[in-house]
Nucleic acid binder design. Structure first.
Length: 287
DNA sequence: CTCAGCTCCTGCGGGC
DNA sequence: TGCCCGCAGGAGCTGA
């Protein structure tokens, strides 16, 4: 589910809700997600004030006052919801708002000000870990990440250098987080359509001019998706439980058999499988 | 080193 | 209606 825009949406929801707040109690409902949690995770979290919430690639990073950073990954189906516990006013009366624990609510963070953050992940491909903030870059989940696609370093020169001699497809190269990080299956398909590049082309054979268009398309698609609150296919929701709506702007993803949206193109969107992942594209517009 | 294929897990939609 | 199958936004391993 969550690629860069969805994770960014989560970060933007979390930041105002928990920064400066004290973590009072952490409820851990199972020992692991993809990997075991640190055995002392509860103790290491409780008593911290949240200094900052930020994003690196598809990871949410929560900087804590005692010098550690919590690394949070949403995998394919992870979701973060924020509730406010305590008395609330309805039209008729006051009631105590204590949300029930739902299926797959694996970790619950309760803050001193009655803010509750719930991490829910049905497929459990996600992860939560803690790391000394100063050593974050050495962490196994961080150490192999490439550059951020919305940073200044990301440009045609960078792609020319990194894709040179690559025998894999440009689609697979973009999914590989070690060159550019944060892109996933949806936004790679979309960006390739916008830049008119066939996903089947070998990464090393894409011309510089095309790579330039590709960098622009990637930035454009990511920025627009962030502005739309991400994409919700089945289940992505922001921290307030609301759906994103960038899926309405998909040009190719999940549109197999539908008309290509290029003006004057009468071709249908094709679906193929590359490295085990579905690729959607127009074989007329993308060469 | 590089790359394709497999794997973890639950839920959902389509076909019968 | 119900069952079975295939597939899903990620990414670490394995082995060629």
């Amino acid at each position: 589910m969550p690629e860069l825009p969805e994770v960014e949406t989560v970060v933007q929801g979390l930041l105002p809700a928990i920064s400066g707040r004290l973590i009072e109690n952490v409820i851990i409902n199972r020992p692991n997600l993809r990997w075991p949690f640190p055995l002392d995770m509860k103790e290491r979290l409780e008593g911290n004030v949240v200094l900052n919430v930020r994003r690196r690639s598809k990871y949410v990073l929560v900087d804590l006052s005692r010098g550690e950073t919590m690394i949070l990954h949403l995998g394919m189906s992870g979701r973060v919801l924020i509730h406010k516990l305590g008395y609330e006013k309805s039209e008729k009366n006051m009631y105590f708002n204590k949300p029930s624990v739902e299926k797959h609510d694996h970790v619950i963070f309760d803050f001193e000000d009655k803010t509750r953050v719930v991490y829910n992940d049905p497929r459990r491909f996600g992860a939560i870990d803690l790391c000394r903030s100063v050593e974050l870059n050495k962490h196994k989940m961080m150490s192999n990440l490439g550059i951020e696609p919305l940073s200044n370093q990301f440009n045609a020169d960078f792609l020319v250098d990194n894709f040179k001699y690559r025998k894999t497809s440009v689609k697979s190269a973009l999914l590989n987080q070690k060159y550019v990080c944060g892109l996933g299956n949806i936004y790679v398909c979309e960006a390739l359509w916008h830049s008119g590049i066939s996903p089947l082309k070998l990464a090393g054979s894409v011309k510089r001019k095309q790579l330039e268009l590709l960098t622009l398309a990637i930035r454009k698609v990511l920025k627009e998706a962030i502005e739309s609150g991400g994409s919700s296919l089945n289940d992505f929701k922001n921290t307030a439980g609301e759906l994103g709506y960038f899926q309405h702007n998909f040009k190719v993803y999940d549109r197999e058999g539908n008309n290509c949206k290029t003006t004057g193109c009468d071709s249908k969107i094709k679906k193929i499988v590359q490295s085990g992942r579905s690729t959607f594209f127009c074989n007329k517009c993308q060469r």
